[in-house]
Simulated scan of single mutants.
Amino acid sequence: MATLWLFILIGATIYFFWLNRKIAESAQLHAKNQAEKLQVQLLDVACKRRRLGLLRTGKPGLKSTFIFDFSSDGESRYQAELEMEDIKLVNVAIPPHKI
């Protein structure tokens, strides 16, 4: 019985690692698309917060907030936020910046 629980624990760990990588790759892609839309240079993307919760669809899932830094003139650095539910982009908060 202990072996079964060990396999379940290992399987859950692998699944959540794979899901976190999938969400991080999706956030990177969404940040790149936002940077192209704004015509700015994408500097980096980082996870600010990740938690379990109910998604807008009513199903359980991971809610994440990612920060991406960008520059519009090569000297200034601005931070925008991406709010995601699993791999779906829910909201983008972009600060005022130079054009």
Rank of each mutant, 00 (worst) to 15 (best):
M1T: 02
A2Q: 15
T3A: 01
T3Y: 06
T3M: 15
L4D: 11
W5V: 14
L6T: 14
F7S: 06
F7M: 07
I8R: 08
I8W: 11
G11L: 05
A12S: 10
T13D: 03
I14E: 09
Y15D: 01
Y15W: 08
W18N: 08
W18T: 09
L19V: 12
L19R: 11
L19Q: 13
N20D: 12
R21E: 12
R21C: 07
K22A: 07
K22M: 14
K22E: 11
K22Y: 15
K22C: 08
I23C: 00
A24N: 13
E25T: 14
S26N: 01
S26K: 03
A27Q: 13
Q28E: 14
Q28M: 15
L29M: 05
L29S: 10
H30D: 01
H30G: 01
H30A: 10
A31I: 08
A31N: 12
A31L: 07
K32F: 07
N33Q: 14
Q34G: 13
A35Q: 03
E36G: 15
E36L: 03
K37W: 13
K37P: 09
L38G: 04
Q39S: 06
Q39R: 14
V40I: 00
Q41E: 04
L42T: 10
L43W: 15
L43K: 13
D44I: 09
D44L: 02
D44N: 07
D44V: 09
V45R: 02
V45F: 00
C47V: 13
K48D: 04
K48Y: 10
R50A: 00
R50V: 08
L52R: 15
G53L: 10
L54E: 14
R56E: 15
T57C: 04
G58R: 00
G58V: 03
K59R: 12
K59F: 10
K59S: 15
K59M: 10
P60M: 12
P60T: 13
G61R: 00
G61K: 00
K63Y: 02
S64I: 13
T65H: 01
T65D: 01
T65P: 03
F66Q: 05
F66P: 06
I67Q: 04
D69M: 03
F70H: 03
S71M: 09
S71D: 00
D73P: 14
G74W: 05
G74E: 06
E75I: 12
S76V: 05
S76Q: 01
S76C: 00
R77M: 10
Y78W: 11
Y78H: 01
A80F: 02
A80G: 01
E81K: 12
L82D: 06
E83C: 14
M84Q: 07
M84W: 09
M84A: 14
E85Y: 06
E85G: 00
E85A: 04
D86F: 11
D86W: 03
K88A: 14
K88T: 09
L89Q: 07
A93C: 01
I94Q: 12
P95C: 05
P96C: 00
P96G: 01
P96W: 08
P96F: 12
H97K: 01
I99D: 15
I99L: 12
I99C: 07
